[in-house]
Each structure stands twice: as structure tokens, then as C-alpha cells.
Amino acid sequence: MKARAFEYVRPQSVEEALRAFGDADGDAAYIAGGQSLVPALALRLQAPALLIDIARIEELHGLAVVRDRLRIGATTRHFEILNSELVAEHAPLLSKAAPFVAHPAIRNKGTFGGSLALADPASEFPTMALALDAEVEIASFAGDRRVAIADFFLGLYETALQSGEMIRAVHIPVATAKTRYAFDELARRRGDYALVGAGVNAEYDGDRIERIGIAFLSAGPTPMRARRAEAILTGSRLTLEIIREAQEALDVDLDPPGDEHTPVEMRLHLARVLLGRLLGRLEARP
């Protein structure tokens, strides 16, 4: 339960960090909050020769609204998201999900970018980023690039990040007066991984849904968008009939894991129940 020996550097800039990774011939890992990486090192699931500490690189940190996007610097910590008035105003779905992210002590260290880079399908923030149609700004030795969140999660713990790349920031379209949102999850114990969870982010035109993003956690190998359910709801008014149709579509949209305690059919059932509840309690921006 102790990490293998490694070397440690704390660069001052993203450029310096990228170079350090390159110089290590790829046998390196970036560390920011380290709330998932440190246990992985202790369990020796990972054993890089070099740890590159990016937690104190100024340009990676902070929250700002730039035109119609909320920019979340990669090393912005979970508790900062939870307590931010800027986030509450411009990405209220994230504020709603934040209290469900792990436990308070983990939220004090864990980072938003780190959570997305790990891409745990049971995590709240990657899934909310998917529901919100975020864009990921990636710093790379070959130059920065941007990837739509829909193209970012490729498989279980697999993302569009290439070796040596890091997330610089995440950009989220800001909420408007037309936005309605809801988040909830079902867990056996608060702070534990949820059996299933979901976030909904909708744009309303009067009482009609103009656009809707629905994403589920713990419902497949990656954070899962419920595209078929979204298609049924788009352009509709919420009626019991439409909600039931959307719930049924989840059988196609989701691909949940099963085990002896939580069989696949149970998770699908819980996902349908959750979607019904969330659609029934969509709320406007505070």
C-alpha cells in the first residue's frame, strides 16, 4: 500500500510541465488534487517514474465568464465549484451536483479537470459536463486544441487526451432565462458511488422543450448521453405520456453494468425512475 519510488517536479508553467513530461519519455503522470491518483499509486495500479505537480500553476486555476461561456480552469477544486456564486448563476447544474461529489475532505483537494481527465463513469462532474455540452481545452506539446465533450469520453477511463497532454480548462455554455435543470442520484450511502445518477439541462420555449441534454452516471462505460430520450422530449410539452416514452428509451440509450447486488435491469429501472423525477422537478436559474 505504498507508492513505488518516483521523482517529483513542480513546474511553474504549463509549457514547462509539458516539456517535463516529454523529457521523461512518457513515463510520467501529472498530479493536481491527486485524490484518485494517489490511491492508484499506493495500489500500484500506476507507477510512473516522474510525478509532475501542476497544482500551483496559476494559469490552470480559476473561474471566469468569457462571453457566453463559463471557463473552469483545470485545477479549480470541487469545493470552489460548490461555493461559487459565478457557477450558481451560469452553470447551476454543476452547483446542484457538487454536494454529491465524494466527501467534504476530498472536495477540498480534488479538481474539476482531474475528474474529467480520469473519466470515471460514476463521477458527477464529467457527466454534468456531458449534459451541458462543454468543450475541453487541451494543452499539448503540438499546440492547444479543443474537443467537444461528446468526443472526449472514448471508453472506460479512456479519453481523447494523448500521452503528455493535459486539460487546461473546460468551457461551459452559460445558462439563460430559458434554462431549466435538475440533478439527483441514488446511492446506498451519501458520498459513495451512486447506483445511478443523472443531470438534465433543458432550454424552454414557453412550456415547450426547445433543447435538452440528459446525461447519466454509472450507466455505462463512460458518462452516458440519453440521445433517444432527448429526441423524444425535444419540441414537446411534458406530459405523462411523453415522460413514459422517454423513460422507455433509456433501455436503448444506456448500457449499465450489472453485478450480484445491482443487476442490469435494476439499474435500468432506477434510471427510468430517476429520469421521471428529474423531469418533474426541472427548475429555473436562481
Binding site: 491527486g34 469545493f79 475532505a105 483537494k109
Partner: peptide, 12 residues
């Protein structure tokens, strides 16, 4: 702020 001392290296 409360944090886990087991989830950090002393160098950090």
C-alpha cells in the same frame, strides 16, 4: 481545510 494526509505526498 480538512484533507486526507494519506492522499498527499509530503513534497506537495
Amino acid at each position: 481545510q480538512p484533507v486526507h494526509a494519506c492522499l498527499m505526498f509530503a513534497v506537495q
